[in-house]
Design a protein around this nucleic acid. Structure first.
Lengths: 362, 362
DNA sequence: CTGAAAGCGCTTACAG
DNA sequence: CTGAAAGCGCTTACAG
C-alpha cells in the first residue's frame, strides 16, 4: 500500500497536508485569483453570488475556477462563515437497532437525496436514549458547531433528543411528537381510526387490541385515540375491548395474542398497533389452528416491507415515510433561509391485504 | 418561533455568530486559557495530549475546560490540523433504493457505533452510479477535504466509487470487490459452495439456478463459482444445469422460476443467488401448485430479515453484515493511525429453514 | 464594481 | 515544560 508508506514517512498532518497540496496541487482561492487576475475577495464574492460584480469579472473567475479545478475547502468556509453545510439527521437508538426501523430507512432515503441536491452534506447521528440524560457525545456534536440544521426523529418521551438542540438554537425540524413547534408527523390518529373503521366495516364487533405502553412512544397515544374514536362513532364501548400490552416486538405480539384469545375466545379480530406484533399474533393464531383471516382477522400498522410477503399478506396502515422525510428536509431548508415553514401532518393510507376478511365469511 | 425572528433580525452569519457567542457564550480556547492562567497553546496541547506538560497544568486546564464548558470548534480544528474527524460512508445508489439493501443497513449500524466510539462523526453519501461517470457531487465531497477516511460499499463494476478516493489518497476501506487492496468482503464463493453442497446433501440432482448478469455486481461471479465448485466436487456437470438470469428483484425471480420450471419440469431444487429472487420463485411455485419444500426445494442468499417470516421460511446464507461493517471501520481506524491493516474475508453461515427438504420426502 | 485587511478558532513548529 | 506567533483557507464589513 503506497498510501500507508506515505503516512509513515510524513507523520504529522501539517507536513502531510503540505505534501498533499504539492502532489495533488489542491487549488485554493489564491490560485483562482491569480489566474483570473483579481483579488481573492472578488473570487469569493463571485462564488457566493454576493451581488455586484461585472459580468466580465464573473466570467474570468468562473473560467479560472474551471481551469485550476478549484473546490472550496469546507472547513475553512465553515470557520469563517459559520456555515458548515452539514445537516444532522438524528435517529435515537432505542431498541439498539436503529435502521431496522423501516420508517427510519425511508426517511433517511428521502433526506439524503434532498440534502445533496441542495448542497448540504448529511451527518448521521444515532444517540442513545436509554438513560435519562441525552447521549453525551450527541451533546458535544451539537455544541461543536458542526451541524447547521437538524432533522430529528423524536418520538421517545423518555429523553428528548430535540430539546438540547432547541436550547442551542440550532434550526431543527422534528419528525414526530417531541417538544418542537416545527414538526412533520404522520397522522397517527387518523390512520388508526381508519384502520378500526375498516375492521368495523367488515362486521367485526368482538375486537381485541394489541398495544404498547404509551410511555414508550409518543405515537401510541394518538393511535389508541384513533381506535377509540372509531369505536365510539360506531356506538360501541371502547372500554369493553380487551387490550394486550406488548413492546413492539414480534414475540410480544405472539404472547399478547395468546393471552387475549385464551381469555376472550369470542374475538374475531385483532388490531395491532404495529406490524411486527401483528406478525406475532398471526404466528400464534396459526399455532393454535385459527385460520387468518377465515377464523380471525388480524391487522397491523406501519406497512413494513415484510407486510406484503407474510402469510397471509398483512392489512395495515402505510405512513408514507419518504414523504415525511421529504417534507422535513424541505422545512429545514426553508428555515435555514430565514423563512417560517409550516408544520404538517401527513395523511396515512389503509393498505388492504389478505389478513382481514368479512365476518360473514366465517 | 423565536428562532426565526432572530434570523430575521440578524441576517448575516457573522453577526449571527457573534450574537450566538454572546447569548450562549460558546467558550473558546482563549476562555479556557484565561481561566486556567495559561496560554492557549498549552490548553491545546493538554487537550490533544501532546506530551510534556506538568500534571499540575493538566489539572488546571481540565478544571477550566469543565468550568467554562468548553467544546472544541470542529471547523477550526479541521482547518488548522487538516483532520476533520469525519468518516464518510459511501453506499452507491444503484436501484434507486439504497437502504432497502439489508446489508447496507447492517453495515451502517455497525459503522456508526464504532465511529462515534472513536470520536469520529459519520457522513453519509449515496452517490449515483447509474451513469458511466461518478457522481459529480460525490467527487466534490472528496475534494472538499471534509472526509478524513472512507468506507465504501463497492460492488458495482460499472462505476467504481473507490477509484477517485484512492487517486486523492483518501484512506479508504472497501467492502466488496472494488479495486482497492484494502478491503473486507464476504466469502461469497464459500457461501455459495456451502449452499449448493447442502442442496446436494439433500439428494437433489435436478437443480436449477437463478442468477443475475455478472456485470451488475462483483459478488455474482464468486457466488456462481462457488456453486460450480460444489457441483463439480460432487462429480456432476455444472454446464448441464439450467440457469435463469434475473435482476435481483422478486419479480424477476418469479419469471425465472416460471421459465425454468416450464422448460425443465424435472427440477426438484432451485438455488437462487439472492433472497428476493427466491421469494419470487416461491410465489411462482405456489401459483402453479408446487409445494415448497415438498415438491420443490428453493433456497436463497443474503438472509434478509424477511427470510424467517416467509411461507415457508427461507433456507439461505447469512453474510454477517454487522461483522463486515465492524471490521471495515476497525481497518479504517487502524489505517488512519498509520498502521497497515490486513484485508479480510468474513465467513458466511448456512441458515437452514423450511424451504428446503430431502428429495426422499417427495 | 473591486480589493486590502481583519478575523473565524484552532494547531504546531520554534524559541525559550 | 510553556508561550508567542504564524498559518490553515475562507468570508465580510469597510474603504475606495
Amino acid at each position: 500500500m503506497q498510501k500507508i508508506k506515505t503516512h509513515d514517512k510524513i507523520p504529522n498532518s501539517k507536513a502531510f497536508n503540505a505534501y498533499k497540496r504539492e502532489v495533488f496541487a489542491v487549488p485554493t482561492l489564491a490560485d483562482v485569483a491569480a489566474r483570473a487576475g483579481v483579488s481573492i475577495a472578488t473570487v469569493s464574492k463571485v462564488l457566493s453570488n454576493t451581488p455586484y460584480f461585472s459580468e466580465e469579472t464573473r466570467q474570468k473567475v468562473l473560467a479560472a475556477v474551471e481551469a485550476v479545478g478549484y473546490v472550496p475547502n469546507l472547513a475553512a468556509r465553515a470557520l469563517s462563515s459559520g456555515k458548515t453545510g452539514i445537516i444532522g439527521v438524528v435517529f435515537p437508538r432505542v431498541y439498539d437497532a436503529v435502521f431496522t426501523d423501516p420508517l427510519a430507512q425511508h426517511i433517511l432515503e428521502g433526506v439524503e437525496a434532498a440534502c445533496i441536491d441542495n448542497g448540504y452534506n448529511l451527518l448521521l447521528s444515532t444517540p442513545y436514549v436509554n438513560s435519562d440524560k441525552p447521549d453525551e457525545r450527541y451533546l458535544k456534536l451539537l455544541e461543536s458547531g458542526y451541524v447547521e440544521g437538524l432533522i430529528a426523529l423524536d418520538n421517545v418521551p423518555r429523553t428528548s433528543i430535540v430539546k438540547p438542540a432547541l436550547e442551542k438554537e440550532i434550526p431543527t425540524i422534528s419528525i414526530g411528537y417531541g417538544p418542537n413547534p416545527l414538526y412533520v408527523r404522520s397522522d397517527d390518529h387518523g390512520g388508526a381510526k381508519n384502520l378500526m373503521q375498516y375492521i368495523l366495516s367488515l362486521g367485526h364487533q368482538h375486537i381485541g387490541i394489541i398495544s404498547v405502553d404509551e410511555r414508550l412512544n409518543y405515537a401510541i397515544s394518538p393511535r389508541m385515540n384513533g381506535l377509540r374514536a372509531a369505536i365510539q362513532e360506531a356506538g360501541l364501548d371502547f372500554e369493553q375491548l380487551p387490550i394486550g400490552c406488548g413492546d413492539f416486538s414480534t414475540k410480544s405480539g405472539f404472547i399478547c395474542a395468546q393471552k387475549l384469545l385464551s381469555e376472550h375466545p369470542e374475538l374475531t379480530a385483532l388490531v395491532c398497533i404495529n406490524d411486527r406484533m401483528a406478525l406475532g399474533a398471526i404466528q400464534y393464531a396459526r399455532s393454535v389452528g385459527r385460520k387468518v383471516p377465515h377464523d380471525l382477522s388480524i391487522v397491523g400498522y406501519d406497512d413494513i416491507p415484510l407486510a406484503q410477503f407474510t402469510d397471509p399478506p398483512l392489512t395495515t396502515i402505510n405512513q408514507h415515510g419518504p414523504k415525511l422525510g421529504h417534507r422535513a428536509i424541505e422545512m429545514l431548508l426553508s428555515l435555514l433561509q430565514g423563512e417560517t415553514p409550516k408544520s404538517e401532518i401527513i395523511p396515512t393510507e389503509l393498505v388492504v391485504r389478505q389478513s382481514s376478511a368479512f365476518l360473514a365469511e366465517r
